Amino acid sequence: MLALLVPGGRGQLGHDLVASVPTDGLVHAPSSAELDVTDESAVTDAVASFAASARDNDLKPVVVNAAAYTAVDAAETDEERAFAVNAVGAGLLASACRDHNVPLLHVSTDYVFPGDGTRPYEPEDETGPQSAYGRTKLAGEQRILRTWERSWVVRTSWMYGAGGPNFVRTIARLAGERETLSVVDDQHGSPTWSLDLAAGLVELAGRVVRTGPESRVLHATGSGETTWRGFAQAVFEELGADPERVRGCGTDDFPRPAPRPAYSVLSGRAWAEAGLTPLRPWREALREAFATHAVP
């Protein structure tokens, strides 16, 4: 039976991790305000008390780090703070988990890659982040992997869910406000429903308390790929709206402070080879998300 500690537990992924833990398990999902991962003493105390409580109740403790600085554009001028959360905080969690022999799962991002690929990125492919956000997330991965041998990095992409603001919610709102939308059609990725990712992380947690997969870096996204325009058109379809109202445009038409990867599709090969259940096709997941939440 599992016990999960989920720093950053009030975001959309944390929300779904709480719902995904079996009823015979336990989950503690503090918000970033309740557990500041940049505070060494707070992290040490939280992991120590969590591990002791779990073991006293004959549960297997695992930390799933969902805490992150995710404001991609703001990070370009606030890289110090992004680094504190995404890199320093991740390293502090790894150290505390090592000291108390608790496996650590760390959620990372497609932004660690340069985004100029032509086929899905494998976990072992060369990284090369082009943004401050990507650099700080990669630094977090590196700190975790060299600090604690019982840690696993799980990269995902284009996540949406019921627990917070996201692309799906934004498009659903704009569909009711505008006759047409212009959405970027030259960036490719894999939309991922946070509930599917949460289920995958819980499955992985169950594995790591036994032996854990050999590969310590894994990719977990909705299968298949699309563009942001294709994603937006699918949202319109679920709303019963005409997808042709979504017009395509180029990245250069919407300049942003942080560069966006043109291609950030992640391969699920290593995930499947580890014996883990592949996440469902992204379009099927979006349909189920709307059926479950009306607007996820």
Rank of each mutant, 00 (worst) to 15 (best):
R247N: 13
L286V: 07
T77V: 15
D24M: 00
D253R: 07
V47T: 05
T70Q: 05
W152P: 10
V246E: 03
T109F: 05
V88T: 15
D56M: 06
P255I: 14
V47K: 07
R10E: 08
P30M: 10
F231N: 01
G164K: 04
R210H: 14
A19F: 02
G8N: 11
V295W: 01
L276T: 09
P281A: 10
L93G: 05
W148C: 13
S49D: 04
F236A: 03
G140D: 13
A139Q: 09
Q233V: 01
P261L: 12
W271I: 13
W152T: 11
R135A: 12
L181K: 12
V47S: 05
A199Q: 04
F83K: 12
P114L: 00
G9R: 06
A54Y: 06
E288T: 01
F254V: 15
R173E: 13
E203C: 01
R173D: 06
L17F: 13
A175M: 06
E76W: 12
F290W: 00
L239N: 04
T23M: 05
V6D: 12
T277E: 15
A172D: 03
A74M: 11
A272M: 08
F231M: 09
I144Q: 06
T221D: 10
E141Y: 03
P22C: 11
L105N: 14
G25Y: 11
G163Q: 05
V217F: 00
S157H: 12
A54S: 15
D39C: 06
C249R: 11
A42M: 02
